[in-house]
Design a protein around this nucleic acid. Structure first.
Lengths: 166, 166
DNA sequence: TATTGTTATACTCTATAACTATA
DNA sequence: TATAGTTATAGAGTATAACAATA
């Protein structure tokens, strides 16, 4: 990767330069970290970020999640969740379980093998993330978390149909 | 397995919970804003974020940029830049210009129509971004910008260690 | 009729690598 | 030999819309 991507921030101009520069910096940070995570997941575990994210959602909800809940939480449309879930089912990492009372619905849940596999990935993932933020003091971490909380709440207000988790 | 090992792992995990939560929140903010921008570019201008970013680079460099420079700045491989550039050339928004002294190379530059088109998009884009951050005070904006600056610098250090190219 | 989830389709972006033409 | 850019390929992610089953 090349530091000349700093020049993405060149997009900022005009009278609202503060907001534009902030957005480009936020995007740059996110892209730099995300690129490392994606590459790591691919090279170390032969998987992708959307697959990891889906499994992470299931790990946080051991009872399982419905397809629509997954779609909502992952912020993608239903057809995509079906596709990723199919992959993971074929690999024995997640399973679909029927739900009593509504035969249209089922819960998607990690299998035992899925839990083991995810734990392995999550451990490595955590190292990448800790590394990404090791330049910040605990106080910086906290302030950044708090400020981004404001940003996130505002996006949710702007776009009501978004999951307030995470 | 020895129970004390589990304890160590549990402790390590909880110690890094701050970083993980921060990353998830950063990613969420970035995705929420980016989604609005992508949707807006598609619905209002029938274009995409990579196309917008390429034009933004060219707007910043009126003399034009070589394909390799664009590739570096946009952080994507050369073949992709060729594809996006081809699209924009076909639509008359950018042009390829020969460079004296090296017939392998040319500069890519916005056409007049491209400049007009980009100015239009940039104006709307700016509104979306201002909207996205209107929940923050000027002081919050500044603090967030500063903290993300630290994050960015650290990613660049990490990348330089891994990839000495550049 | 509305909702849940699937299927089918098409498009964009991406990395990789082989290729052409210059240098 | 090395470099700039293109072409070809394959894969992933996405949105959209039509569809089936169930409520």
């Amino acid at each position: 990767m090349n530091p000349s991507m700093l020049d993405l921030e060149a997009r900022a101009h005009s009278e609202h330069a503060h907001e534009l520069r902030l957005w480009l910096r936020l995007l740059t940070c996110s892209q730099l970290i995300e690129k490392r995570v994606r590459t790591g997941l691919r090279e170390h575990f032969d998987t992708t970020l959307p697959r990891f994210d889906l499994m992470a959602q299931l790990e946080r909800h051991p009872e399982g999640l419905k397809m629509k809940e997954l779609s909502h939480r992952l912020m993608v449309t239903g057809g995509n969740v079906t596709g990723i879930t199919d992959q993971l089912v074929n690999e024995g990492l997640v399973e679909r379980l029927n739900v009593d009372g509504d035969r249209r619905v089922f819960r998607v849940r990690l299998t035992e093998r899925g839990r083991v596999s995810f734990a392995d990935m999550a451990r490595q993932h955590e190292q990448w993330i800790v590394e990404a933020f090791e330049g910040l003091s605990p106080r910086d971490l906290d302030n950044l978390h708090r400020l981004l909380g404001k940003v996130k709440q505002h996006q949710i207000q702007l776009n009501q149909n978004v999951d307030p988790d995470a």
